[in-house]
Design a protein around this nucleic acid. Structure first.
Length: 260
DNA sequence: ATGCCGGGCGAAGCCCGA
């Protein structure tokens, strides 16, 4: 089972590229972030024609996450517990099936948090605590699950081209990394780094200042796997070529492959 | 680079992203 995550920076603006890539690569599950549309405006019919079921947690203008999967999608849940006032559409989870073996998959868009310090950073850290609680709840089931998406966290020095540019940034601040590490330390595996301990690879390049031609990138799109999912992990890939397309998203797809 | 690009909204210019 191949599971993709892709922050598409508006599904309306980048639908053509996304659908072309899905037709060629045929991933089994696709987690989308920043769809930037309300649920009724998501192009579900077009994805269904391509063989996918869809579960969407949309929002006007900002955020928005979705799950596509070949076969059925069950137990769809949206949002994270712990803040009744939170109206930002950043989390959707569901059960998907590969050869009959169920996997719980979540598509998440973790808050950026800049400027830090400030209310946006407080929201980011609080959101990470809520995500940790969700991970703890899922771990108690002792089943395979994958929490994947745009984490907006640079885990280590090796995950950025220009560390000096990020010293005071919410994506790199010690508290952000510590919160990410806390979730990993529950017993989750960050798939790409686990399989490629020494590889320098990025998943985001800013649109500005020639970041892409200079390869001035960061790695912030991740997949965290429960032990039962990590046991099935056989590959992790970053599709960096997607960034070179005409009119691309600023993020590229990150893929993991599990034994069916 | 407290935004250089790019998207949304909405029809100019501001908000937001990382």
């Amino acid at each position: 089972m191949r599971i993709w995550t892709w922050n598409v920076n508006s599904i309306k603006a980048h639908f053509e590229q996304v659908s072309e890539w899905l037709k060629v690569e045929k991933p089994d599950v696709v987690c989308l972030q920043e769809i930037k549309c309300e649920t009724p405006n998501f192009p579900a019919a077009a994805f269904e024609e391509m063989g996918y079921s869809c579960a969407v947690h949309g929002q006007k203008t900002y955020n928005g996450v979705a799950l596509l999967a070949r076969g059925k999608i069950e137990n769809v849940a949206t949002g994270l517990a712990g803040d009744e006032a939170d109206e930002q559409a950043r989390f959707i989870s569901a059960t998907v099936f590969g050869n009959g073996r169920p996997v719980t998959v979540a598509s998440l868009y973790l808050p950026n948090g800049n400027p830090a310090p400030g209310p946006k950073y407080d929201y980011k850290l609080a959101w990470m605590k809520r995500l940790k609680a969700k991970a703890q709840e899922l771990l108690a089931t002792e089943e395979a699950f994958v929490l994947t998406g745009d984490y907006n966290v640079i885990p280590a020095l090796a995950d950025m081209k220009r560390p000096e540019a990020w010293v005071n940034d919410a994506l790199w601040l010690a508290q952000s990394r510590a919160a990410f590490q806390e979730i990993e330390n529950l017993g989750l595996t960050e798939a790409f780094r686990a399989l490629h301990p020494n590889e320098v690879a990025y998943s985001f390049w800013d649109y500005q200042a020639g970041a892409w031609p200079k390869n001035n990138g960061i790695r912030i799109d991740h997949a965290l796997l429960s032990p039962q999912a990590a046991d099935r992990l056989i590959a992790a890939r970053i599709h960096r070529d997607a960034r070179g397309h005409e009119k691309p998203s600023d993020h590229v797809p990150v893929e993991i492959e599990l034994v069916d």
